[in-house]
Nucleic acid binder design. Sequence first.
DNA 1: CAAGGAAA
DNA 2: TTTCCTTGG
Length: 333
Amino acid sequence: MGVALRNILTDFKQPADPDKLKGVAAIDSYNALYQFLSIIRQPDGTPLMDEEGRITSHLSGIFFRTANFLSQGIRPVFIFDGQPPDMKSKTIQERKDIREESKVKWDKAKREGDLTGAFRYAMSSSVVDAYILSSARTLIQLMGLPVVDAPSEAEAQAAYMAGKGDADYAVSQDYDTLLFGTPVLVRNLTISGKRRFHGRQVTVQPERVILSDVLTNLEITREQLIEIAILTGTDFNPGIRGIGAKTGLKKVKSGDFESIVREKLPDFDPEPVKDFFMNPPVTDSYSTEINRIDSDAIRSFLCDKHGFSPDRVDPVLEKISKKEKQKTLESWF
DNA sequence: CAAGGAAA
DNA sequence: TTTCCTTGG
């Protein structure tokens, strides 16, 4: 779910014009897939599915959005999670419980004809399971796009790659990537700028957050930003009731982090969490190279296997191939 | 969410 | 043309 730092970051978000977005984008795949699964649904919450009943919402999302990325000069790299740290197990269990409760509420809302509720509960019942991950990976690779296997958290790996300069920015809706030290975070990276909110469509701009701006303006270090996050709660520790980002900022700057943790969370040692954000497991074994798109294989995967309409798929494939040829030609001169 | 067609 | 609404799988 990420971290509740919004209240102290609002001042440093800047709308990102398309030019600033050109380059290598390190995408937190789980985050993107969850987004697609929750939003790409029918009004009663039913996701897109093929004839066999397999969910295809995420494939639609990846295919069309990624095609747009390429046409805009955005070169996506999809980072997949590895082994989560033990500290995350409580959060993982909580998410599972919420999903299961939501599923029950979704069915109930559907029975009662409550479409708004149905859609909302359907969203929060979304599950990124092994099938979602493997089918997403298949499509990404057929599109010629790089996949990176993070040893642990994908957000940590994305931040690492952006820090090294192998990616120009990290893409996620969550702010955790900043804690992991990404120099630049981009949120709301969509093309149409449309997102559904309470079932309604609203326009949202892609926004860029520059870590150094945040730290300079708040006059804190990254360690201190992590301390604020720890006080409000992260995926790796419960927060303290009554402390939000603003109070957290104040307490951390006045040097009260340790004493508050001792008082309010006596059984909790913040050091492992701090250390995980500062020095997470990452790998150098990756490539950000883009390969040729396999249009025939994509047609077969999306249309033959998953019931997509060739009328919708073909024009997109053509557009990507055309762009690809342009690039190849340019590189000769 | 993104595409495509309808409506304005 | 631009915006709105529905469909997609």
